[in-house]
């Protein structure tokens, strides 16, 4: 897999990162070698193999439908960089 400038642009946009030119070049090189190395898994024939997402032998972990939490706004907002009127404050999301 050749990692192009386009790939770096795309993945950095997905990861919400702004890279300097130098970082972009480094990312191209590093991702190129790492992702190429990953491709050794293509040596394995996995056509008949079910993908294993959960390794632990547990199913149906549920809680009952009961309300156990009360208001806790002070704690919820305690680490926020900026708040207003009991809300997290962010730059305007619509124009």
């Amino acid at each position: 897999m050749i990692i192009t400038d386009e790939t770096i642009k795309y993945v950095s946009a997905l990861a919400k990162l702004e890279l300097t030119e130098e970082e972009k070049e480094k990312a191209k090189k590093d991702l190129g070698s790492i992702i190429s190395y990953m491709e050794i898994i293509n040596e394995l024939d996995t056509d008949q193999v079910e993908p294993l997402s959960h390794v632990f032998p547990v199913k149906n972990v549920f809680r009952d439908d009961v309300v156990v939490n009360g208001p806790d706004r002070e704690n919820i907002l305690s680490n926020a960089p900026e708040t207003k009127d009991g809300c997290f404050k962010v730059p305007k999301t619509v124009e």
Partner: peptide, 30 residues
């Protein structure tokens, strides 16, 4: 951290999921 987030975004991104992420889950099974 940035590098890993970009690798992660890549292996899950549309068009590459099956070749990387799904394949890795199959290898994990093996």
């Amino acid at each position: 951290v940035k590098r890993r987030m970009m690798i992660g975004a890549f292996v899950l991104s549309s068009g590459y999921y099956d070749a990387y992420y799904k394949k890795a889950l199959q290898v994990k099974a093996l």
